[in-house]
Amino acid sequence: MLPTIAMATGFALILMGLYGALTHRNILRMILGFTIASTGVNVVLVSVGYMPGRTAPIMDSAVPVADAAARVIDPVPQALVLTAIVIGLGVTALMLAYAYRLFRIRHSLDISKFTELKW
């Protein structure tokens, strides 16, 4: 049940974020939409690694080393998501920097004011 809820939340976040990015005209709102969508992807990835009745992949007093393989959840998606979060932050920072440059050019953040690549 728990992974289904987490996965549904993640998918819903992806759809909400993409909807926001596709429909809004303000560049900052589009960036926010992309951030929400990437959070959704991370939630889905982490929920894939979840296994019922198991605990976090840290071998302390609760998880003896000998039967760690039977007690912990999948650590690989968590390592992947750590990477994804960091790269997501880098992408967001780049998008914000470019948004600032665009604002300097047109004094507006409305995407429909930028018509050079429109056909």
Binding site: P57, I58, M59, D60, V65, A68, D74, P75, V76, L82
Partner: peptide
């Protein structure tokens, strides 16, 4: 999954012996 897949099981079994770290991630 009911079981860890092969990669994850390798990490879970050998992390303590090969790297000495408690946190598998």
């Amino acid at each position: 999954d009911a079981e860890l897949n092969r990669t994850a099981a390798y990490y879970a079994e050998n992390t303590a012996r090969e790297t000495g770290a408690q946190n598998i991630v």
